[in-house]
Computed example of a mutant assay.
Amino acid sequence: MVRVALLSNPRSTGNRSLLPRVRSFCAAHPEIFHYEVEKIEQIDAALRTIARVRPRVLVINGGDGTVQSTLTELYHGNQFDGAPPPVAVLPNGKTNLIALDLGATGDPIVALERVLKLAQGPLDDHIVTRELIALTHEENGVGDGLKPVLGMFLGGAGLTDVMLYCRNKIYPLGLPNWLSHFLTLLALLVTMFLGVRARFLPDRPSPVNVSLIRQGEIQGRFAVLIVTTLRKMLIGSKIAPGLPHSGALQLMAVEQNPIALLRAIVAGLFGKLGSTFMTGVHVGRGDEIRIEGERSSVILDGEIFSAGRGRSIVLRQTDPLPFLRLAA
């Protein structure tokens, strides 16, 4: 009997060293149905095949792009002819934000063992629901008619520049993830506190307008712009509960100001974001968010999307999907 279906992308960076261990583990556990895709375009067909074996849990083994593409196809494809099985994500990527939110940390094989153990018993106490972010484009107020792209963590404004800086200039150095992220943070602080501009440092953010529909608009240059449906945001912080507006989309925008950034970091560490007003720090919730600017880009779970004059990025929340939380 198949209890777990594992969808792997051998081309993801983490799987270059991990996949042989994953294959060996699956070979020793016939309760796992392991399906490997060579291209992102094969994920829909993979899910339709997986649906035939009726797994109790679907596990995604790949980087942020693999997770995003799988969630997009899973939400739109109706491969399971009804509600899909709960989704688990192995910690196998550069950022692992989704895996971290679901309690999957450390060795991916240990996380897979935990999934298999949970799949052998009642799952109800371990299932959580998460809404997704549905990203579309509008040009002069008219939608492009394309299928929305889905994800759970979006970074924009200066955060996009920093993420691209880390991806294009720091990751190629081959350093450990923690050191790469530390050097990126150091470069960001140098540009903000010292005002240094150089080719080897992140770019200065462009002006951007952010609208929480029915709740007003904020505009300016932001060092950090985050929209997420994850319970955790950056540096392990959480937006304080009880924000005044409903909606699954959590927004945090921090103006390009070192003092405002320090306020946000300290408030985040103590779980106080949104609990009190802080100059330069904007926190809110909503079910629809619009991002506009002359040159504004965002990264949704590793994939870049851009907007320009007359072209908007529109974010809406989806209906919830079930996920498997690995933490006790």
Results as ranks from 00 to 15, higher is better:
249 L>N: 06
127 I>K: 08
284 G>L: 00
121 G>R: 13
62 G>P: 11
238 K>H: 15
90 L>E: 03
165 Y>V: 00
158 G>S: 03
249 L>C: 00
295 R>M: 10
297 S>K: 13
196 V>M: 12
83 A>H: 10
247 G>N: 06
76 H>M: 06
137 H>G: 02
80 F>K: 01
77 G>E: 05
311 R>E: 10
115 V>S: 02
18 L>N: 11
3 R>I: 03
325 R>K: 13
115 V>E: 00
234 L>Y: 10
54 R>C: 00
10 P>M: 00
57 V>W: 08
120 Q>D: 14
241 P>G: 11
168 N>S: 12
199 R>W: 12
188 L>P: 04
172 P>F: 00
142 V>L: 14
97 L>Q: 11
120 Q>H: 13
221 R>L: 08
236 G>K: 04
166 C>R: 09
182 F>N: 05
236 G>Q: 03
61 N>C: 15
141 G>V: 01
98 I>Y: 10
21 R>A: 14
219 Q>Y: 11
168 N>Y: 12
213 I>C: 12
319 D>A: 14
131 E>Q: 15
180 S>D: 08
127 I>L: 04
299 I>K: 09
75 Y>S: 07
207 P>T: 00
50 I>Y: 07
205 P>F: 01
300 L>D: 07
144 D>Y: 13
302 G>A: 07
232 K>C: 11
146 L>F: 13
